Amino acid sequence: RGITCLDHENEKVNMYCVSDDQLICALCKLVGRHRDHQVASLNDR
């Protein structure tokens, strides 16, 4: 089922925000508060 995003409840987390040490979803990176932050794919970890 996967872990859902805290900010976007219908989205699954699939990225890690290095700047905030937090799991995020694609919407967080595209339009959310993490858009200018350094992120890594969970597949890279």
Rank of each mutant, 00 (worst) to 15 (best):
L6G: 12
T4D: 07
I3M: 14
I3T: 13
E11R: 06
H34Y: 01
L6M: 13
C5N: 02
D20R: 01
L42T: 08
S19A: 14
C17W: 00
N43W: 03
H37K: 15
S41N: 14
Y16I: 04
R35L: 04
V39A: 09
T4S: 08
R35V: 10
N10M: 06
R35P: 06
Y16R: 15
M15S: 12
D44C: 02
V13W: 01
C17P: 04
A26W: 11
Y16D: 09
D7W: 04
L30G: 14
Q38R: 11
N14G: 11
H34D: 01
T4V: 05
K29I: 10
R33P: 12
A26L: 04
N43S: 11
T4K: 06
A40T: 09
N43I: 04
I3E: 12
R33I: 08
D44N: 08
V39E: 07
L23P: 15
C17M: 02
L6A: 15
R1S: 06
E11T: 05
I24M: 08
N43K: 15
E9C: 12
E9R: 11
A26Y: 09
S41V: 04
A26F: 04
A26C: 13
D36V: 04
L30N: 13
L23T: 10
D7F: 09
M15E: 08
D21E: 10
E11Y: 14
N14S: 13
I3K: 11
R1G: 10
C28Y: 00
C5A: 02
V39F: 03
Y16A: 13
C25A: 00
Q22K: 13
G2C: 02
G32T: 03
H8C: 03
Q22R: 14
D20T: 01
L6C: 13
L30E: 14
G2Y: 12
C17T: 04
G2D: 14
Q38L: 04
Q38I: 03
Q38W: 03
K12T: 09
C25V: 00
D21S: 09
L23G: 12
L30F: 11
H34E: 03
R1E: 12
L30Q: 14
H34L: 00
N10C: 06
L27V: 12
S19F: 07
C17G: 07
M15D: 11
T4E: 05
N14R: 09
C28A: 00
C28R: 00
E9T: 15
G2K: 12
D44V: 05
C28Q: 02
R33Q: 11
L23R: 12
D20P: 01
T4F: 11
D21T: 07
H34V: 01
R35S: 11
G32I: 02
H37L: 01
C5H: 01
R33D: 07
D36G: 08
L23S: 11
R1Q: 13
V31Y: 08
I24L: 02
D21G: 11
T4P: 04
L23M: 15
L27A: 15
C5L: 00
G32S: 03
A40Y: 06
A26T: 09
R35T: 06
S19H: 14
T4L: 03
A40R: 12
V39G: 06
H34M: 01
C17N: 05
V39W: 05
H37N: 03
V18E: 14
C5K: 03
Q22A: 12
D7A: 07
S41R: 10
N43D: 10
R45C: 12
D36R: 05
D7R: 05
L42I: 08
D21P: 00
Y16P: 09
V31C: 09
R1F: 14
R35A: 13
H34Q: 04
I3G: 12
N43P: 13
S41M: 05
A40W: 07
L6S: 14
D20M: 00
D36N: 02
H37Q: 03
H34F: 06
D20A: 00
L27N: 15
Y16E: 14
S19Q: 14
V18N: 08
R35Q: 08
E11P: 00
C28W: 00
D21R: 09
D7S: 06
G32D: 03
L27R: 15
R35H: 02
E11L: 01
I3V: 06
H34R: 02
C28P: 02
D7G: 03
A26K: 10
R1M: 10
N14W: 02
E9D: 12
R1D: 09
L42K: 10
Q38K: 12
R33M: 10
H37A: 04
L23E: 15
E9M: 12
C28S: 01
T4Q: 04
